[in-house]
């Protein structure tokens, strides 16, 4: 019974959202606002259970009950986090800057080494790595062509985004080749996005035809 009620609710909400294909209407708005509320509620629950409870509440309560004082250090981030609520008072809004500054500082500090390692070093290695195989003579003729194409594509794309010099003469032609590579990249992204969305559509129609109709007939 619980499953059937779930299927009917899901089917009703699915049809509510698809009603937007006709035009904006109360059914769509009903689903839209409910979706915003439910998604926000879900995020709050996850953040509390995956952040606040394991990293703040549990060490703190263990410190209080067990007498270990190390958990009390968690009172500092809790107090800093509570400063967000100063934003509810117009006179004390500036206190939000303290927790915000910490969050932004940590994010920036974590980003620099991570981006360097995962994006710049790894992507550069992936681009020029096949040349080691060319040097060793283990790459076929087609593989050599692909390795050269990769370097040409990356250099031309980067040239297109390089605005420190005027795009004239050879630079203009290199950046034009970069645009061609970018268009292929955008075309691929578009094609994959469309197919992803169509797959979701097929899944929803399959749900309506098999799961929902299955409860009726």
């Amino acid at each position: 019974m619980e499953k059937i009620i779930g299927i009917w609710i899901a089917a009703f909400l699915t049809l509510c959202i698809y009603s937007f294909l006709y035009r904006d209407n109360p059914f769509y708005r009903f689903a839209e606002y409910l979706f915003v509320g439910v998604s926000l509620g879900y995020s709050i629950v996850l953040q509390i259970h995956q952040g606040l409870i394991p990293f703040a509440w549990q060490p703190f309560s263990a410190a209080v009950t067990g007498g270990s004082l190390t958990g009390l250090i968690k009172l500092i981030p809790i107090a800093i986090g509570l400063l967000f609520f100063a934003g509810l008072s117009p006179q004390q809004t500036w206190l939000i800057r303290y927790p915000s500054a910490i969050l932004i500082g940590v994010t920036s500090g974590v980003a620099i080494p991570n981006v360097l390692q995962a994006h710049i070093f790894e992507q550069t290695r992936g681009t020029i790595g096949p040349f080691a195989a060319i040097h060793a003579g283990t790459l076929s003729g087609w593989g050599v062509f692909e390795a050269i194409l990769m370097v040409v594509g990356v250099v031309c794309t980067l040239t297109y985004f390089f605005f420190s010099i005027e795009h004239r003469g050879p630079v203009k032609w290199v950046s034009k080749v970069g645009i061609a590579f970018l268009m292929i990249g955008f075309g691929s992204a578009f094609g994959n996005t469309v197919m992803g969305r169509v797959a979701l559509l097929i899944q929803r129609v399959d749900f309506l035809l098999n799961d929902w109709f299955g409860t009726i007939f």
């Binding site: 981006v115 994006h119 681009t127 980067l158």
Partner: peptide, 23 residues
Amino acid sequence: NPNLSARRGIILGISLGVISQSI
């Protein structure tokens, strides 16, 4: 191949932007 090279160009550009903005 061509898609990955364009993506790498974009990723490298974005990464340099992220690092400079973080600094």
